[in-house]
Amino acid sequence: MHTVIAAGLLSPNVGLIVWITITFLLLLLVLRRFAWGPISKALAEREARIEESITSAERALEEARKVQADNEKARRESEQEAQRILREARETAEKLRTEEVEKTREQIRQMQAQAEAEIEREKQGALNELRSEVADLAIRAAEKILGENLDGGRQKKLVNDFLEDLPSN
């Protein structure tokens, strides 16, 4: 009895084998035509699409990075340019200012020198005048004191000798 049952489990059923072969073959054909084919194709398509999207996104990102880098570079360059212009302007202004000051100072110096020369000349003139005035005054005073007139030539010689003895200035 037991072995018969076991044989029932184990003995192949030829009819069933025929049926299952047909069933599985049909299942395989139907699924390959209507299921696995379209599904595989759709999945491959989707994978390709995703792949492509990722690649193009990466490319876009790369491009954006490049543009950004370019922008950054341009900005930095223009900033440097501005700095440079500013610096140059400042330098020019400084130079101009220095030149102006220098010129003014030169003018002042010249004017000063002129003025000093003028003063010197005036002083010299005044001194000479004063000297002749003093000589005259002295002669006159001496005439009065002596009461007598010396001849002009002697007088003058006397005064000059006297003046020579005086320390100059």
């Binding site: 009819g15 025929v18 209507f34 599904i39």
Partner: peptide, 30 residues
Amino acid sequence: LDLSITRHLVFAWLGALLVIVIFVTLARRY
């Protein structure tokens, strides 16, 4: 040959039918 429909055959058909229904539906969606 005994080509009778058996219990296991019925359930094999049921299984095959389920696979077909599910995956053909899925393929339609795709």
